[in-house]
């Protein structure tokens, strides 16, 4: 990110004779170029400000509506007539929302640990070791990835049900589904491991370290960005899953995650006037996730960029 400062904004030359760095006063021609530059920058600022408004407005509206005390359906004005915490109070005390929140948090925590272990294991094996079936594994994953995920829904549901992991058991059931196939998402971290020089492994192996020790003591410490990226992704994904989560919970409100619970509030007739409560719930979900994401943004950028470049 430091490159932007490499090219100085004013032209400077080194004056050999004087032995000092002298700033060249812009010639008239250059001045018009500067004016042009200024206009371009002004236009860019205008675009960026407009974009920022478009990008932020929905979220500002969401927050505003969550504080609206009066009627909870759609209204034709932006600023609530009366501000208050009523919606938050309501969803935290009168509904199952805290439970859904807890469920989602549990899923997210387990998911981020287990999925990270699985993804890193698979990536390490595929990046560092050569064995029979390695190519087959990678090709199969590529082919499997081309099938739409929802195709498997009913069969998955039945498998989980026979393991007792639906309804009451929906939380461990969802964790199992999310983690079971997470080995297929090795792409980005394998790409990262590939960039770590193999000579590091080899010298350690000559010193008598086992593969396991190499993985733990040499590769892991070098892989902080990708580890954090994987954890972040695994933590964030469960918050948005509606389809599988509603299928597996199967009408058991205690097993819902936030997405399933809140979706009902917007899209079923049983919940008239719950729109502002949906907004309040949405705010409570979005704040910690957004904060976490912005905190770890740097690692996210490294992950997606690496993934995009290496494909």
């Amino acid at each position: 990110m430091a490159k932007e400062n490499l090219i100085p904004e004013v032209d400077i030359v080194i004056d050999q004779e004087a032995g000092v760095i002298r700033e060249i006063k812009p010639e008239p021609k250059l001045r018009s170029k500067k004016a042009h530059e200024k206009r371009v920058n002004g236009a860019i600022y205008a675009i960026l400000i407009a974009m920022s408004v478009i990008w932020l407005l929905p979220f500002i509206l969401l927050v505003l509506q969550s504080f609206r005390v009066e009627y909870g359906g759609q209204v034709a004005y932006v600023i609530p007539k009366q501000f208050g915490l009523d919606n938050f109070k309501f969803i935290l005390t009168e509904t199952n929302f805290p439970r859904w929140y807890g469920n989602t948090l549990i899923i997210a925590l387990f998911n981020s640990v287990l999925q990270t272990v699985i993804v890193l294991s698979v990536s390490y094996a595929l990046s560092r070791m050569r064995f029979r079936g390695r190519k087959l594994f990678m090709k199969s994953v590529l082919v499997l990835g081309m099938f739409p995920g929802f195709l498997t829904m009913i069969a998955l549901y039945t498998l989980l049900k026979n393991l007792g992991l639906t309804q009451e058991g929906a939380i461990p059931g969802l964790i199992l589904i999310y983690c079971a196939s997470s080995g297929m998402g090795y792409y980005i971290s394998k790409g990262f491991f590939d960039t770590i020089p193999k000579s590091l492994d080899e010298s350690a192996r000559i010193d008598g370290a086992t593969r396991f020790q190499v993985f733990l003591k040499i590769i892991m410490p070098l892989s902080k960005p990708i580890v954090i990226y994987t954890i972040l992704m695994a933590f964030m994904a469960p918050w948005g899953d509606y389809v599988f989560a509603s299928y597996v919970a199967f009408g058991k409100s205690d097993s819902y995650n936030v997405a399933v619970g809140l979706y009902d509030w917007v899209n079923t007739n049983d919940f008239q006037g719950y729109f502002t409560r949906f907004c309040a719930g949405g705010v409570l979900v979005a704040i910690p996730i957004t904060a976490l994401f912005l905190m770890l943004q740097k690692y996210y950028v490294e992950g997606v960029t690496g993934g995009a470049v290496k494909g």
């Binding site: 359906g73 007739n269 008239q272 719950y274």
Partner: peptide
């Protein structure tokens, strides 16, 4: 025909499930 999605009601064809919401509006 959903009271909670309607913002500017002069009249609406709807059912009893929205009666409470309609009274409020």
């Amino acid at each position: 025909s959903s009271a909670s999605n309607a913002t500017n009601i002069g009249a609406i064809v709807d059912g009893t499930w929205d009666a409470v919401a309609m009274q409020e509006i």
